[in-house]
């Protein structure tokens, strides 16, 4: 028998999270998702710290024994962004000449399986979640993307802010023509 297995440790850590804090984080991620659904991008950007990083690596279909893994920082990424890069993207979404954004995409950001843990810094939390992102476009087009997020949330002047987000998509070949949204 193996004493003190890793899964038990993870569960114990999760159990120690304060219920009020957990609800606060749940509310935070749900509100964030709604800002994205409603394309309220400037408000969404305000949820990030100025030193935030936002990383969505490309996923490769690699063998189990391939130690280089399915994604890595030295490979191409859909997003490898600072807050300045995210602002560029928002500038494109909000430009009146973004023809492909009209009629508007019908977004649905579903976030679930939220786990809250203490972060590495005393004012930070590690928050894990999964998401389903549905986009309806035109009369019949639809795209569904799935993935897993790991966030570093920081408390800034009493409010939760996103200091880092890593998004690991479930897709190697993206089953969509573009990503005209955020996760």
């Amino acid at each position: 028998m193996t004493p003190a297995t890793t899964p038990a440790t993870v569960l114990e850590t999760a159990d120690r999270v304060d219920a009020g804090l957990y609800v606060e984080v749940l509310q935070f991620v749900a509100r964030e998702a709604r800002l994205l659904d409603e394309e309220r991008y400037p408000e969404w950007l305000a949820l990030f710290t100025e030193d935030a990083t936002y990383w969505v690596p490309g996923i490769e279909n690699r063998s189990r024994h391939d130690r280089s893994g399915t994604h890595a920082p030295e490979r191409m990424a859909y997003f490898d962004d600072t807050i300045a890069d995210l602002r560029h993207r928002v500038d494109r979404f909000t430009a009146p000449t973004a023809w492909a954004e009209d009629p508007a995409t019908r977004h649905l950001h579903v976030v679930s399986n939220v786990e809250v843990e203490a972060g590495e810094a005393p004012d930070e939390l590690t928050v894990r979640s999964v998401f389903v992102n549905h986009r309806g476009q035109g009369s019949t087009d639809s795209a569904v993307l799935y993935g897993r997020r790991t966030d570093r949330l920081r408390r800034v002047e009493g409010r939760l802010r996103i200091a880092a987000r890593k998004v690991v998509l479930s897709h190697a070949t993206l089953p969509a023509k573009n990503i005209n949204t955020f996760f």
């Binding site: 859909y78 494109r92 492909a100 023509k177």
Partner: peptide, 18 residues
């Protein structure tokens, strides 16, 4: 290259639709 010409790129995003 990715920020501009990839599925999430601010330029490429409009091509596929066309």
């Amino acid at each position: 290259a990715m920020l501009t010409f990839s599925p999430s790129g601010v330029f490429e995003m409009d091509d596929g639709e066309n």
